[in-house]
Each structure stands twice: as structure tokens, then as C-alpha cells.
Design a protein around this nucleic acid. Structure first.
Length: 441
DNA sequence: TATTATGATTATAT
DNA sequence: ATATAATCATAATA
């Protein structure tokens, strides 16, 4: 109830000049009788029709004259006030501006892809990071990689130049120097225009502010569009160049051999340690995660169908066995006697299904082996010997294979998990840790 | 062209 | 985190 009078009051002040002004206009522009007024209207219409013919100076002069009219401020106030009221009623609806989650998502992605972030060394770092993130193509395929990098750089450049255009400096301060952004230029231009127009039509500062807000929102949406299409472009690029599944390349023969060698010589526990993986990765010039992938695939596929891998297993076993025996120098003893070993010690893996095949093994491992061998990985030799023996032990290949082939039997308990260190050997030598190579670490 | 081999990814469990 | 199992998508092969 208090408010009423105040409101009325302020209204009253605003309206104060209204009648006077109207009256003045009437006085200034026309005579008082009907004829004169008609004549006058005709004049005005004529003026309007010919306004384009007027020179700019003339128009400016007229505008200036109007602007300097003594009643102009009053009229301006009134009209502004009226306008304000209508605008306010419209405004309430569109006032919310939450931090767009979609925009944040785009931002994050661009940052992750190395598009939005700071320029690093021509983008190679970003590309490398992206590659590593996907499990990493190695140092190979550098041709495709550089192609990808180039395209990514291109995208980033376009993105940045475009973004800069639409970037808006929030609350620019007089003291600070901002680079000229198109958005700001445009905003300034509009503001000047509106200010200029406010001399001839009612535009309040608040309205200008509002208009600036609208412009900024518009620019924001343009920015978002830009980000979205950049994201799309990057995704397409990625799927074309970096999706390793699409661009799968087999490892080279040598790498496969190295991996297989390790696998079959650690068959009882084919879980290379982190160090061993790094070692293998280095030797094969692939990444550690690729080594992990390889072993994961190998284990599961071997276990799934041992028969299929039997030949390969024998081959690698024989090979490493030859190496080992030639090194250790009593190959004959290890190899020849019918002392299939290992089933007992290595246990876990394929012993379970082929108990008959490997059964009588215990005896040998007591023998000789550990005697002279220094750092040799006894476990691995045991593994490889087992295969050699299985191959040469008097069963035909086919028989052995068919017997071996019993996926179930492999391990009802699940597989390699329980592989113990050989109990019989006094010095475990903790094999899995180190491959026999000795590159720097 | 159909099939197999293979590296990578995903879902799930531990 | 790491392993397994299933699955995907491509490379290689018959």
C-alpha cells in the first residue's frame, strides 16, 4: 500500500512533460485551422517521400535540430518509460542461462584431442597422446601418422582462427588491452548505432545492454556450432586414421617370433611381468599395451584350442630347447632319455588333461639340470623341454595332438593361475621377471 | 569371395 | 589394475 503513491509519483514526474511537448509540436509545425493542417500534413508526406533526395548534410542538420529541441529529453523519457513497460513484460521468459553441459562436453573433447589446448610442437604431442590413449600404434606407420597430424593441425588452425573471431571479452576494462575480436567490434558497432539512434527514437541504456546480451548469446551459439563441427571433423579424422581396428597391421615376423618364443618358453605361467613386457615391447618395437594385448589373445586362444597350436608349440619349444641345450652343453642328457619332465613341476597348465602323456616325469628334474646352469631360467627350460619331449617321446604327432586337444581338460580350475615355482629346484631363479636379453634398463 | 588369422576393444570379474 | 571371454574389424589366405 505504500508503494502505490510512490509509483504514482514517479509516473507523474515522467509524464510531466508530455502534454507540453505535444502542444509545442502542434504549435511549431502547423497553423491552427483545418485547412492549414491538411496542407501541413501534405508537406510532411512530401518531405518523407523526398527524403532520399535530400543530401546527407541536410538530413544530419535536421536530425541535429530535432535532437537539440528543448523538449526532446522529456519526450525521450516518456517514450522510454512506455517502452520499458512493454519490454519488461516480454523479458521475464528468456532470462535463464545455465552453463550448457553440451558445450562443456565439446570443450572437454576438443581439449582432449589437442585441438583446443595450447599448440604443442606442431601437434605431434597431441597426436601421440591420442595414439597412446587408444592403445597405441607404435613407432611404425609414421607415414599415416604424420598425415593425421597434418590434418589435425589444419583443423586446429581453422578452429582457432574462427574461434577468435567469435570470442567475446567479458566486461572489457579500459585499462586492459584486448585483441580486436570480431564479436567485440560488432557489439561496439551496434552499441554506437543504438546510441546514435537514441537521439531520434527512444532507446534506453537498459535496452542497449539487453541487445548486447542478445548479440553475445548469438555469438555463443555460433561458437558452439563451430565447436560441434570441429568435433565432428576430428572424429571423422580419428576414425579414418587412428582407429587401430580399421588399420590393423600384423606385427612383423620377427616380433611374432619373439613373442611366441616367450610364450612357449613360459607356458606354465605365460604372464610376463611389467618389466618383461617392456623388454618384449622394446625388442619387438611395439608398445607395452600391444604386448599385453598379444599375450591376452594368445593365452585365451591357446587355451581354447590347444590342438591347433600344438605344432607351433612344438616348434618353438624345440627351437628354444636347442638354444638352451647348446648353451648348457649337455643337451644329450636332457634330450635323449625318456625323461619327460615338468608335468609335475610346471603343473598347472596342460598337465591336467594329458596326465598319461607326461606322467612319469618326476624323476628327471632332480637330475643334473641345476648343476651348472647359472642364470639360466630353469623354469623356461623345463617348459620347452616338455614340448620337445612330447613331440619326440614316441607318440605320433597326431595322437599327441588329438590327446592334447581337450579344451575342457586344460583346466577345470581355470587355467594358469596356480602355476607354482618348481618345487624341486632349489634355486627358483624367479624367471618371469627377466627375459634372457640384457639391454639396458 | 568365403574363411581363417589376428590385433584391438569391450564387458565383466577378481 | 589386470585377466578373461566375447566380439569387432580388418588382413591374409585358400
Amino acid at each position: 500500500m505504500d508503494e502505490q503513491p510512490r509509483l504514482m509519483h514517479s509516473h507523474g514526474v515522467g509524464m510531466a512533460g508530455h502534454p507540453g511537448l505535444a502542444q509545442h509540436m502542434q504549435d511549431g509545425t502547423a497553423g491552427t485551422d483545418g485547412e492549414g493542417r491538411k496542407q501541413d500534413i501534405g508537406d510532411i508526406l512530401q518531405q518523407i517521400m523526398t527524403i532520399t533526395d535530400q543530401s546527407l548534410d541536410e538530413a544530419q542538420a535536421r536530425k541535429h535540430a530535432l535532437n537539440c529541441h528543448r523538449m526532446k529529453p522529456a519526450l525521450f523519457n516518456v517514450l522510454c518509460e512506455i517502452k520499458e513497460k512493454t519490454v519488461l513484460s516480454i523479458r521475464g521468459a528468456q532470462e535463464e542461462e545455465p552453463p550448457d553441459p553440451q558445450l562443456m562436453r565439446l570443450d572437454n573433447m576438443l581439449l582432449a584431442e589437442g585441438v583446443a589446448g595450447p599448440e604443442k610442437g606442431g601437434g605431434s604431442a597431441a597426436a601421440a597422446a591420442a595414439a597412446a590413449a587408444t592403445g597405441g600404434v607404435g613407432a611404425d606407420n609414421s607415414a599415416e601418422h604424420s598425415d593425421y597430424r597434418a590434418k589435425l593441425t589444419q583443423i586446429r588452425q581453422i578452429y582457432h582462427t574462427e574461434l577468435e573471431k567469435y570470442e567475446q571479452v567479458l566486461c572489457p576494462r579500459p585499462g586492459k588491452k584486448h585483441p580486436a575480436k570480431a564479436c567485440n567490434e560488432f557489439t561496439t558497432h551496434v552499441m554506437n548505432l543504438l546510441r546514435e539512434q537514441s537521439r531520434t527514437r527512444p532507446i534506453s541504456p537498459k535496452e542497449i545492454e539487453r541487445m548486447v546480451g542478445i548479440i553475445h548469446r548469438k555469438f555463443s551459439s555460433i561458437q558452439m556450432q563451430l565447436k560441434q563441427s570441429t568435433c565432428e571433423a576430428v572424429m571423422i579424422l580419428r576414425s579414418r586414421f587412428l582407429d587401430a581396428r580399421r588399420k590393423r597391421r600384423n606385427f612383423n615376423k620377427q616380433a611374432t617370433e619373439i613373442l611366441n618364443e616367450y610364450f612357449y618358453s613360459h607356458l606354465s605361467n605365460p604372464y610376463p611381468s611389467e618389466e618383461a613386457k617392456e623388454e618384449l615391447a622394446k625388442k619387438c618395437s611395439i608398445t607395452v599395451s600391444q604386448v599385453s594385448n598379444w599375450f591376452g589373445n594368445k593365452r585365451i586362444r591357446y587355451k581354447k584350442n590347444i590342438g591347433k597350436f600344438q605344432e607351433e608349440a612344438n616348434m618353438y619349444a624345440a627351437r628354444t630347447a636347442v638354444n638352451a641345450t647348446s648353451v648348457s652343453a649337455h643337451g644329450s642328457q636332457a634330450n635323449s632319455p625318456s625323461t619327460p619332465n615338468s608335468a609335475g613341476s610346471a603343473g598347472s597348465f596342460n598337465m591336467s588333461n594329458s596326465g598319461d602323456l607326461f606322467m612319469s616325469v618326476q624323476s628327471l628334474n632332480g637330475d643334473s639340470y641345476q648343476g651348472g646352469q647359472v642364470g639360466a631360467n630353469i623354469q623356461s627350460q623345463v617348459d620347452t623341454l616338455r614340448h620337445v619331449i612330447s613331440q619326440t617321446g614316441g607318440y605320433s604327432d597326431s595322437l599327441a595332438a588329438s590327446q592334447m586337444y581337450s579344451p575342457q581338460g586344460i583346466n577345470t580350475n581355470g587355467g594358469w593361475q596356480d602355476a607354482p615355482t618348481p618345487s624341486s629346484v632349489t634355486s627358483p631363479t624367479e624367471g618371469p621377471g627377466s627375459v634372457h636379453s640384457d639391454t639396458s634398463n
